[in-house]
Each structure stands twice: as C-alpha cells, then as structure tokens.
Design a binder for these strands. Structure first.
Length: 454
RNA sequence: GCCCAGGUAGUGUAGCGGCCUAUCAUGUCGGCCUGUCACGCCGACGACUCGGAUUCGAAUUCCGACCUGGGCGCCA
C-alpha cells in the first residue's frame, strides 16, 4: 500500500514514506523538527563545509534542507571516510541523533551514526544547484533535471500542480467529464496556424493544434460538459518569451450554455487556481519572493472589442483600426489601462474562427471573447455555431473547404445542442500568476523553435 | 520569416588590435582551521564556437557557418 499523507502542521503537505524496501525508516526532512530524537534521512548533498575538526553538510530532499554536523572526533570512522569521499549532489542516506540547537538552520541538526553514499555525483556539475553562480536559461534547460533540484525552480512546478489540481476539482465538482482526443489528426482543422506534419504509415498526418473540433463533437454526443487538459502543437516559427510550440491547453465545452455563462466559468476557474495557490503554496511563494499574492476578484471587466481598439488607438504610435488584430503593442497598452484580468468581448466575426457564433442582429460581430491578463492573452472562447448551414457558410467564407471537415460537420446534421467553450493556456496562467519573465520557466521540457532535446 | 544583440574555464563574467603566458567570482584538487550557514585563509587546476580573410601582430576587425538571447510579425 502506498503510504498516507503526513500532516506537517502549517506547512505544505507532502506524502510521507515508506517508498521502497530499505527506505522504510526514512522521514521527510521537513518532519525532522527539534523535538525529534532520531532520524534517518535520504536526499541530495546540497553543500559541504569542512572547518577542520568539524564538518557541516546540508542535505536536501523535496521537503527541505537539514544540516548534518560531523564532529570528527566523535563519529565512527566509516562516517568520516564516506564524508571525505562524497561530492555535492550525491544521494546519501544519513541516520543518527537529532540535536535541538539554536545556531543550526531550522533549529536542529543531525549527528550521524551511519552515512551511506547511495549514488555518487560526478564533478563538476553542469550547473550550480546552490545558485551561488547564476546559469542562463539555455544552460538550465540542457540540464533540466539538475535545474529542477533548485528549490526555487521546483516551487514553480509545485505551484503549477496546485493550479491544475484546482482546475480539476472545479470541473469535476461542476459535473464535467474528462475526455481525451487524438493528437494525431488527418487534416488542418481550423486553418490559421501552421501544423507539424508527421508520417502516419502511408498517410500524411499532423499534430493537432487544438481539441476544438473533437470537444464540439462530444456536444453532439450528448456529453453536455466535457474538458480536456492536454498538449497542443503549433508549428509557428516564433521566437518570443510567451510562445511554445508544444503547450498545455485546458479545454472546456458546455452544452446549453451561452458565451456569458462560459466566461463566468472561466473566471471562477482562474480565481480557484489563484485561491488554491494562495492557501496551499505559501512556502513556494516565499521561495519565489512573492510577498503580495493577489487573488483576482470577479467579475472581470467585459471590454468590447471596439472600445479596446479605441484605448489602443489613443495610447500607441502605430495606427490601429476596427477590424485589426490586437498586436503586441496594443495588447500592452490596453493591459496597462485595465490593470488586472479582463475580457475582450464582441469581436469582429472576420478575425475570429468560423465556429464563433455571430450575433443575430449584427452578424459582423460575434459572441467570442478573449480572457486577458495585463501582460498577455490567457484564453479565448466563444459561443459556437451549432447550425449546420451557417457553419458551412462560415467555413467557406474563411476560404476553407467544408469537405475536409465532414467528420466534424456530420454531427451538426443529427441534432446538435447549442454550446460554448474556451481553451486556457496552462503555462500562460502560471507565468502571469508568478510574474515569470519567460514562459519556458513554466514548462519542464519546453519545445520551442530550436529546442527538441531533452 | 524580419530586425537587433551575443557566443571567453563546469557555471556566470571582464577584456574588444600589441599592455593577454586572458580578469574576477564560483567550482574542483591540495594545505590550515571545532559552530559554519554564500564559512575564512594559502596554493594549484581549468576557457577565447568553428572555418576562412585582413594585419608584422587577432579573443578583439571583416566574411561565412553553427549556436544562443531579445524585439517584431505570425499565432486556439
């Protein structure tokens, strides 16, 4: 049986052990408090400080760091020889007595009776885990496994995990069904973005840019509320701090809901993610030196597209007019004006995908929305076209061929509930939440224009 | 795809025609040190992306390749 959760009071809750034979005595470093008498810990050698008759080693596991103090005259010879041999970032097991002592970090230290090198690390290290010397992102990504040993890097992924947990909890409790849809597809589904072609036996295939068409088909299947959290692929040759060629999309589709209702859902989910991080990730926020963590409040302002253009036109040099896409400069200018999360609503039909539902009284405007953070777009969504004839006309008006979409269009002929949905970029959510300067910081193994390994 | 800036020890940097047998920090190795906590002190080790050109002389200038960062465009 996998061990239960421990309850380190006031701290982050990590699963306690026993993982694997021989490690049943191990306790997480966080739980070695001044009150404990004896402890066996396993972890990485974080730092070595030899003062002569006295040595200090810092041992790190994912819960924290503890000082192992070695008074050379008072510990067994076997401990001394192991300590002489050990290198930074080696994996070790240390067992001994715990001493409560003011001057040690965390108010306690471990005096070893046994010291075992489980896995010796080579030297020199590809980067400095202790962060005395910085490393460039490129160097860090080349050795991501080591980079992720740095508590501050791990903190980002703990926070990302908390966000995703909040999203799942919210969606499951609202009765959503999680689905998985193909990532290998036959045709360019939506137009617009470039796709990665791949070889699929004797056929040409692509990596999917979005689960859009599939989640809509599940509305046709009567699932009513579906979500998928998975990878999406874009073959754009962009080279920026906010684009990835492989990203994680949180995709949602809801039957019998209009765009207003799914905007409310989106708002709730973003706030739930912030709230989860606020209430459970304090130690990680501290590591990242984020003192003031603001949970955004609802409702987010709904800014009509034409007003957004007006703001941009007043604030930026380059001319912008109704019908234009909102470029980087405009996005920034509007973001400054709005100051917090906001929606841009009522977009021109011409610059949104064919599946966005036009208003009946003015079909040049559609029921599409973008969720914006002042720094960038986080999500886009819409009420969808559920009428077969209108959908075919819209596909044609985008210069696409309806015949290549027949698998998608057929369900619209056999009773399609009205529906709405959105896709939210997980990395962008984390990036904007934590003020990360580069989206690659929010992905373990980013795929960008130049990086395919690791 | 366009534009700009770069590529110097394991890592992060200084140097930008001769003062370079290349700076500093960190690291590693050796020595001293019993309360460090970025331990300290002494010593050593370790690098100019590659190819071509200019020049008496190139880390430094020029050309090309490769690689990197950033901005823009494009982008559910």
């Amino acid at each position: 049986m996998f061990p239960p959760f421990s309850t380190g009071a006031g701290k982050y809750h990590y699963p306690s052990h026993t993982i694997g034979i021989g490690f049943h005595m191990r306790i997480p470093i966080q739980e070695v408090t001044p009150g404990v008498e004896r402890a066996e810990i396993t972890g990485f050698v974080h730092e070595l400080r030899d003062l002569g008759g006295l040595s200090f080693l810092l041992i790190r596991d994912r819960t924290g760091i503890i000082q192992v103090t070695i008074p050379k005259k008072k510990v067994p010879e076997a401990v001394l020889s192991a300590v002489r041999e050990v290198s930074r970032e080696s994996v070790v097991r240390v067992a001994g007595t715990v001493k409560a002592i003011e001057k040690a970090p965390g108010g306690r230290e471990l005096i070893p009776e046994t010291f075992e090198i489980i896995s010796l690390a080579m030297s020199p290290l590809p980067l400095d885990v202790v962060e005395k010397v910085p490393a460039e992102l490129d160097t860090r990504l080349d050795s991501r496994f080591l980079d992720a040993r740095r508590p501050r890097v791990a903190a980002v992924f703990q926070i990302r995990n908390a966000c995703m947990q909040a999203v799942y909890e919210h969606l499951f409790s609202a009765g959503f069904i999680q689905i998985t849809t193909p990532k290998v597809v036959a045709a360019a589904t939506e137009g617009g973005t470039e796709l990665f072609p791949i070889a699929y036996f004797e056929k040409e295939a692509f990596l999917n840019q979005s689960p859009q068409l599939y989640k809509q088909m599940m509305m046709g299947a009567g699932f009513e509320r579906v979500f998928e959290i998975g990878p999406i692929f874009r073959a754009e040759e962009h080279n920026t701090t906010k684009h990835l060629n492989e990203a994680t999309s949180i995709d949602v589709e809801v039957s019998y809901a209009d765009h207003h209702q799914v905007m409310e859902l989106l708002e709730e989910i973003v706030i739930a993610a912030y709230r989860k991080v606020d209430t459970t990730c304090r130690p990680f926020l501290d590591l990242l030196e984020i003192q003031e963590f603001q949970v955004p409040s609802s409702p987010f302002p709904r800014l009509p597209y034409d007003e957004a253009i007006g703001i941009a036109d007043r604030k930026i040099e380059e001319p912008i007019k109704y019908g234009d896409d909102i470029g980087t400069a405009a996005e920034k200018a509007i973001g400054e004006e709005m100051g917090s999360h906001y929606f841009i609503v009522d977009w021109p039909t011409a610059i949104k995908p064919y599946y966005a539902m036009p208003y009946q009284d003015d079909p040049t405007v559609c029921k599409a929305f973008d969720l914006m953070h002042p720094r960038m777009e986080l999500s886009s969504g819409s009420e969808r076209v559920h009428q077969y004839d209108l959908l075919v006309r819209q596909i044609q008006s985008k210069g696409l061929n309806p015949e290549s979409f027949s698998f998608y269009l057929t369900p619209f002929c056999y009773g399609m509930p009205p529906h709405s949905g959105w896709g939210l970029g997980a990395e962008r959510l984390v990036m904007t939440m934590l003020g990360l300067s580069n989206i690659r910081e929010a992905v373990l193994f980013p795929r960008d224009r130049h990086r395919l390994v690791p």
